[in-house]
Structure formats: structure tokens, C-alpha cells
Design a protein around this nucleic acid. Structure first.
Lengths: 340, 340
DNA sequence: CTGAAAGCGCTTACAG
DNA sequence: CTGAAAGCGCTTACAG
């Protein structure tokens, strides 16, 4: 069965292709009621679907957005193993769908090579999720496409930014632990990059310690990858630093690993160690005990990303930087040393 | 800066657009070495990228695959909250990328409405993930596109199928528990649908019980949704059925919820209850104790899906039904009653 | 070994 | 209120 085209509709409805096109695109002001009705009837009858390739070719628009997810450091796989990405994309797809856009999911190695094939598609906009090399940002900028960066601090006016105030959020998280009576607090983090999210989180953590009159110790900072394994390994390190009573992790995924690692070494949570996470992914409710964490409303954040990028495509004014709200989500992994 | 077209390349290289097209498409047998070199040089110089819309319009191919993910029963969100989907898509994207295809991620409500917008894109193939209404399968079939169904038992020759032998896998899982000395074994499952995956899992579970001479009790089967919450709630039900010593869950997500629910009620795992999962998602290693589960190699499964669908598009012969391997992944959530 | 021309399905000025 | 024509960027027969 050959594809139904606008021409077929036109012939069957007894009008010109142009009129059909106008009706489809809602420029019906110039078409009589009767013709519109007739055309719509034929469209339904023949199950006509516009050919987006043709439409995109002529209009230079595609109603497609590509989301670029970094690959894992080790291999070729998407970082979807971190539920943070999955939940964000979830929200993004949901709002884009409502707005009539489709979502291409793509990954790039750090050179940006994988990206080329996406751009061939005339995508209307790009959403970059997380950390990439400068090289890639330069490349993306050259494409001259509406681009939103999630969780990035590259403050180039060319890009839309969606992030939270990581320094403050981190400060609040640490302060929360301090208010619960903890003083020697470890911070388990991912690979620290200059000007990145994690650096700001560290700054907030240190500010809270300073404010509380706690002298920060270098070996409280445990750097690794943002992974379950890093959390798990950090248990060992933690135990070797006996003054520490609480660990604040820069991702729920790390915190989940830490909890598992501590359990394996016979430690109880929160009795022996308080653990705090960041993100409030689904993981936070799945571990035992349920994780006290910084809720950054990932689903809403993904949805907001969809709205921002499409607004920008539509030429609506959009703030260059949008901050997401966050709040401490209290569950069961932190002990109150004051009242205990 | 205007878009670089094949014409620009042709002009600059002093050849016709057709020759450029031939070189790009590797039909270089008919072009001289020198011309090829010249053309490639100009392509690099001008950073030319083929316009896929134009290419797709004329060739009726797009090198795009759409993966269709069901929406949650409650709302508008993708089922990416189940890591199973995220990991599968991860694998799918990875193999498609290597094969030179892009991935559109789409969702449909049960009527299949969302799908229309995807098909407008001339996608070359479709991957349907999980359960959908018959209505949708009919609709998809009408599109006459190469389509792969993952985890479905709709044995229509029009579709490629990728699944595991759920009855046997479930039988093995139950048998494993029996060999560890359990006899009264609950089975926590999702919404049972005729001819679906879960029905077969139940059949395998019952076969193992029968074989062991255990009389199956109706209240051992706890039906709900495939969700953390269902697992959590099932803890209560389980405790009310005192003879039960082990629960075999049809998804890790459910098992994780059950473990949390049991913990909340002061039960120890595996001492008080043995828990077994299914899938071996990342969750299985994140819960405490680590979950003994049926490993179905989700990442490889996703990769295989990519290979099967693209092979089929390329006209290579592909088996109508492909079975994935599975194996029991022993961790710490099942107690050996025989040697304890 | 290479070119001129037609056409994929649509939209967009331009006419009337 | 509606139509005929050109053109988006590419590929594919058909010539030579």
C-alpha cells in the first residue's frame, strides 16, 4: 500500500494540494467551512499522516529535540544506570510529548563524535545532560541551535541553563547534619572538575562546617566516580577515619553504595553512621533505611527543561539561567545525636 | 550562516552534485581516486552534514528506530522508573548507535495515540517494550513496519519477538527456593493478563511446587502492579500467611519493596523471610541484603534487540522468536533451610 | 568516469 | 476563497 499524500487528499476532496496543506496547518481562515469539513473527512478516511521529512525539508523545522546523555567513563553505555538520568528523561519526554515534540536520545563520547548524526536531523533544539568536555560545548555552540544545559555552570549567553543552586543546597544539607549534632562529617563526591557542580557542592559543605566552627579535614573528602561502587568502597575509607559520624554523599547512588558497604562491614545505619544523599531519586526510598536526601524534584526538572527549550525555539523570552527548587527530604538514615 | 549543501560541495570541488552524492554514499567505484579525495577534502573544509530530511524524503528510509515505552498505569509518565526499562534502552541505544541508527523514545497511552506522531517520521522500525493493548498491536501491524516486541507473547508472524522462556525461568527460580528447603513459597506478581508474561511465570512457579509435592495455596499468589509500593504492601499480606517462609517476586522492583516492607515490620532477611527477585536490574545489588534473582542480562537483551531490528530492516533473515538466556544470580536474600 | 533532469511530499510566495 | 508553480536538499534512473 503506497503512502497517502497530500495530493491524494486533494484529488479525492476535489481541491488543490495547497488548500489541503492550509487546512492541515490550521490556516483555515482562508478556506470555507464546507471545504474544511470535506478535507478533514477525507484525511480520516484515508488515514493520512503528513510526511515529516518533507515538511522538515521545506520548513527547516522538525519538532524534534535531542537529549544528549554522557557515556559512562568506562564503556560505551549510557549513564542511564544512574536513575537520575532516567527520571530526568522521563520528565523531559512527558512535557515534550504534550508540547507536540519528539525526543531523540543520543550519547556522545567525549569528543562529540556521536553528535554529528543527530544534527543531520535538523533537530530544533538540544538538551545536554550533565558533564561534557569544553570541546563538545564549543562544537555544540557552533551549530547555532537552541541548547539547554542541565546541571552545568558554563555561563555562555548562547546556552540556556537549568540547574539548582548547588552551593546553597549543599550548605543546607551539611547544616542539617550539623543540627542533628554531627561535627565530623565526611563528603563523598564524584570526579571534581574545575567550575563544575561538584566543586560548588564542596564549597557549600565547607561553608557549613566553617560556620559551625568545625575544622575541615582533608581526609573527609572522598573522591571517586558517581557510582554505587564508589559508595561501597568508601565504607572502608570511612571506617579508617574514626572521628567521622556522618557521611554526606553527592548522589543517592553513592549513598546507596555506602549503605551497602557499611552493612557489609557490620555497621548499623543510622546508629553507627548517619548517611545523607543528594537527588531524591527512586533509590532513596529503596535502600534500607530510607535515605535522607536533598530532593531536587527531578521529574519536574525534566519537564521544565522541555518547556524552556521549546519556549526558546518558539522565540519566547526565556531566562538565561533557571534555578530549580530543592528541599531536604527527611527519612531514616540520619540519627539525631542531640536527642538520642 | 546558511546551511552547506551538496551543491556547495559540488561547486567548490568542480564536479556535479551527483558525483558528490555518490562519494558520500560510498558508490565510489565509478569515481576517480582524485575526485574522491578532492570531494572529501571540501566536505571536511566546509563541515558539510547531509540533510537527513531530504535524504529520507527521497529514499523513504530514515535510519531511525522508535522505541515505544508504556506509560505508568496511573499517570502520564514513562515507565522508566522501573530500571528494567532504563537498562534495556541503554543497551538498545548502544547497539543502534554502533549500527548507525538513531533512537526516538516515545510513549503511548493505551489507545496508541502518541504513536502517530512518531510514524510521521518514517521511522525504519519499531521496538515495543512490554505490555500494550491488542488495539495497539493491530494499529502497529497496519503500519507495515519492521517491528520487534520485547517480552510479549503475541505470536503473529508479522512481528519479531525477543523474550525469555518465562515459564522455565520461573520454574528454575521456584525450584531454587525449594532446593534451599522452602516449601511454602509466595509469589508476588503484577497485573495478570491472559497470554502474558506473568501468566507463564505463574505456571512455572506452580509446576515447580507440584513437582516438589507442595500443595499450592491460593493466598500465596499476591497480585498487584509491578512497583515498589506493591512489594512494600505485600509485606503485610505475607505476614498474615504464617506458613510462608519465602517470597518469589516477578520483578526486582517488587522484591525491593517487599524487603523494605519487611524491614519496616521488624523482620530480618533472609533469617525470617527469604526473598527472590527477577530481572537482575541494578536494584538487585542496591538493596540490603543483596537480592538473589533471575538474571536476564537486560543490557545484552537491549543490544540484541537493536541488532535484530536492524537486521530485519536490512532484509537479513531473522528468527521470528529469539530467546534470551537467563540464569539464577545467587546473592544474599535467600537462606538455606537445609544446612542452616 | 561524469552530467542534466526528474522527482520524493510538502509549504510558500505570488496571482487571480 | 482557491490554484499553479517554484523550491527545500537529496538520490536515482538515464545518457553519454
Amino acid at each position: 500500500m503506497a503512502r497517502v499524500t497530500i495530493k491524494d487528499i486533494a484529488t479525492k476532496a476535489g481541491v488543490s494540494p495547497m488548500t489541503v496543506s492550509n487546512v492541515i496547518n490550521g490556516k483555515s481562515a482562508r478556506v470555507s467551512e464546507k471545504t474544511i469539513e470535506k478535507i478533514n473527512q477525507v484525511i480520516t478516511e484515508l488515514d493520512y499522516k503528513p510526511n515529516m521529512s518533507a515538511r522538515s525539508l521545506v520548513s527547516n523545522k522538525s519538532r524534534m529535540i535531542a537529549v544528549i546523555v554522557p557515556l559512562t567513563e568506562s564503556g560505551n553505555d549510557l549513564l542511564l544506570s544512574n536513575p537520575f538520568y532516567a527520571e530526568f528523561i522521563n520528565g523531559l519526554e512527558s512535557s515534550l510529548r504534550e508540547l507536540g515534540y519528539s525526543l531523540i536520545i543520543a550519547s556522545v563520547d567525549q569528543s562529540g563524535k556521536g553528535l554529528v548524526s543527530q544534527l543531520q536531523w535538523n533537530v530544533d533544539g538540544l538538551v545536554l545532560l550533565g558533564f561534557f568536555k569544553d570541546e563538545l560545548f564549543h562544537y555544540v555552540k557552533k551549530q547555532n541551535l537552541p541548547t539547554l544545559l542541565a546541571d552545568s555552570y558554563i555561563d555562555d549567553p548562547h546556552f540556556l541553563n537549568l540547574r539548582l543552586d548547588d552551593e546553597s543546597a549543599s550548605y543546607e544539607a551539611t547544616k542539617y547534619l550539623i543540627e542533628k549534632g554531627h561535627r565530623s562529617i565526611a563528603h563523598i563526591t564524584g570526579t571534581i572538575r574545575e567550575g563544575g557542580v561538584l566543586e560548588r557542592r564542596i564549597a557549600g559543605y565547607q561553608r557549613a562546617l566553617l560556620e559551625a566552627g568545625v575544622e575541615y579535614q582533608n581526609d573527609w573528602l572522598i573522591e571517586g566516580t558517581v557510582s554505587f561502587a564508589h559508595g561501597q568502597n568508601s565504607a572502608e575509607t570511612l571506617i579508617k577515619t574514626p572521628e567521622v559520624s556522618a557521611a554526606y554523599c553527592t548522589a543517592d547512588l553513592i549513598a546507596a553504595g555506602l549503605i551497602a558497604g557499611l552493612h557489609q562491614r557490620g555497621k548499623r545505619i543510622p546508629e553507627d553512621y548517619s548517611v545523607m544523599g543528594f537527588d531524591n531519586t527512586s533509590i532513596a526510598s529503596m535502600v534500607w533505611p530510607a535515605l535522607t536526601t536533598v530532593d531536587q524534584g527531578i521529574l519536574s526538572k525534566g519537564k521544565l527543561a522541555g518547556k524552556l527549550i521549546t519556549d526558546s525555539i518558539a522565540g519566547k523570552p526565556v531566562d538565561n539561567v533557571t534555578y530549580c527548587p530543592y528541599k531536604i527530604h527527611e527519612q531514616d538514615s540520619v540519627i539525631d545525636m542531640v536527642r538520642k
